[in-house]
Design a protein around this nucleic acid. Structure first.
Lengths: 338, 338
DNA sequence: CTGTTAGCGCTTTCAT
DNA sequence: ATGAAAGCGCTAACAG
């Protein structure tokens, strides 16, 4: 209606007939004043539609009430879940969420981190591809960080019980009849080494011969290429061909299923395909070890906020359990000639 | 290494033996100075690891170099694509991205918008559930907005050619043999009415009887419930049962496919299931009209940034074409009794 | 070409 | 119980 300018604290003070500091105290609950004045002030606030400038506040207090979240790739539903959880907790605590997508590029990640650090009170790093020492150097009292899905000393973190998840997945496919389950491994960071260990140790226990295959890329193509190159070495008909493929994630699994179809192999009848992945409606058809992504995002944020408020033991590593989720459908490839 | 405090512009000025304003001018390229001074300044900047405080800068300039993005639901891959596109463009232009997930709640959305408005220079609203007049009221010169996937007068927007996409999808299933394709409709906002119109007009043209079924919810369950309640009225064996279901989105489609399986119907052999959805590796198995989500996010951000810089015709509505993407796999339900 | 000065809007001692 | 005053770090006239 009225002016084109935004109301400032001075406007409120004037309207309420008090000083600016008084308004500030009332609005922040810093100090209790007489009911009469408080009411006048709140009335003025409402009437003017006053909203404190976050920038002025930040400059003055040295804190922004904002946190940053850097993720590996927003198209990956695991990170999507993390954003969901983090966003919810941040909002509940009155914090803004600055999101940055590293797009799987460490150089870009590093720059984004620098920028976000300046804007926020602390950072959540999910799926970071930076070397350990850089990560450790980042975690200071000025802007604390919490890592998600990666454990390293001197930096607080939240993770899922990845090794255990791998054990369960391996046992599952074997119980379902597999004799030669192979693991399609992702990039060599914490998550993958945990999963690899879980897979290997379980294979040992079961007296089976493990096969760890490195994915050329953690995407559709990566899964497809892995299957095709596997088939070119070991013919699908041969008794050495894996009868179960444990995939680093659901995206890879989707590529794997497609490639198997091209080889006229059906999942799960000919080859079981299972994966690690978040709780996500779109993935209900694939059997997987459910990584509690939303919980990781939420608890990571809680951890960060507690750190910011100094109400915390100096360092903490939190672990959250996974669950097995059986897929509800089977997929078979349709060959298209167009 | 050194102090625990962050370097300020005064530190740089002192180190370089110039005044603060000089430093500011050099760093912002506001004014060209002698090479000698410039070099001294940059050296000091690098040496101190100086980074300007965004808050101080924002307070001083009245602009934050940040934009806000409010989305309906981060778990929905359509919005995920929008975030990807918006994030990339924002980063390229040196803008920070504040993300807020409305979680499909208009009240929450409204509050998030208010908060983000205070933090940013402008807002991108994707999948907004607010009434038209509220949206129009939001769009002012103070903090401009751009809507994604919704057209209304007086507010700039970017959308996909939804009606056309619906036409193509309808034609596709009919060409593939369907006689009674039904449309499973989403909530009554712009996108859905466009799709409905496209579907209806094409059915008319083809001389077929349209059937628009309102989804009880736009999620897995919604799709499943729709199928089951449909089946309870019209037995799947009866000749009135749809032989194609055009789903509001891929999440619904996934629920639909599961429910069909429970009725012992296979997609696509018994019933074709197609959907509207973003370009996303996880959705490659479903045939759909590809909504260019990333492009919408990117171009919406461009539009917003141009508006912010005043370099724009007063109002603009941008449309982007969709593409048909054939699914690569067929899905069949596995009954589980556990 | 460089420096001085005066805010931006808010918080926060410190007086009263 | 309330107000005055200083300052957070930066930018932007305006002088020189």
């Amino acid at each position: 209606m009225s002016s084109t300018r935004k109301a400032t604290i001075s406007d409120v003070a004037r309207a309420a007939g008090v000083s600016r500091s008084t308004v500030s105290k009332v609005m922040n609950g810093t100090q209790k004043l007489s009911d009469a004045t408080e009411n006048r002030i709140w009335a003025a606030v409402r009437q003017l539609g006053y909203q404190a400038s976050p920038h002025a506040r930040s400059l003055s207090t040295g804190r922004s009430r904002a946190i940053g979240l850097v993720i590996l790739d927003i198209l990956n539903p695991h990170f999507t879940g993390i954003v969901k959880g983090a966003g919810r907790v941040a909002r509940e605590h009155g914090y803004a969420l600055l999101l940055a997508d590293a797009e799987e590029d460490p150089a870009q990640e590093e720059e984004l981190i620098r920028t976000l650090q300046a804007h926020t009170d602390g950072l959540l790093l999910a799926g970071s591809r930076l070397p350990d020492d850089k990560l450790r150097a980042l975690h200071g009292p000025l802007t604390p960080i919490v890592t998600v899905g990666r454990v390293l000393s001197e930096v607080p973190s939240v993770v899922a019980t990845e090794a255990q998840a791998a054990r369960e997945l391996t046992r599952l496919v074997v119980q379902s009849g597999a004799q030669r389950p192979a693991y399609l491994a992702g990039p060599s960071f914490w998550v993958n080494s945990q999963r690899t260990q879980g897979y290997l140790s379980t294979m040992m226990e079961l007296g089976l011969t493990p096969a760890v295959i490195s994915l050329p890329g953690v995407d559709l193509q990566g899964g497809a290429v892995a299957v095709h190159s596997l088939a070119s070495h070991t013919p699908p008909q041969s008794p050495e061909f894996p009868d179960a493929l444990i995939c680093y994630n659901d995206i890879v699994a989707t590529g794997v299923i497609g490639a198997l179809g091209q080889l006229n192999l059906k999942a799960p009848d000919d080859v079981q395909v299972v994966a690690f992945g978040p709780e996500n409606p779109l993935l209900s058809h694939i059997t997987h070890a459910e990584i509690p992504s939303q919980q990781l995002g939420a608890e990571g944020t809680n951890l960060l906020l507690q750190t910011l408020n100094g109400e915390l033991p100096p360092l903490l590593h939190l672990e959250f359990p996974t669950a097995l989720a059986l897929g509800t459908t089977s997929l078979s490839y349709i060959s298209r000639t167009s």
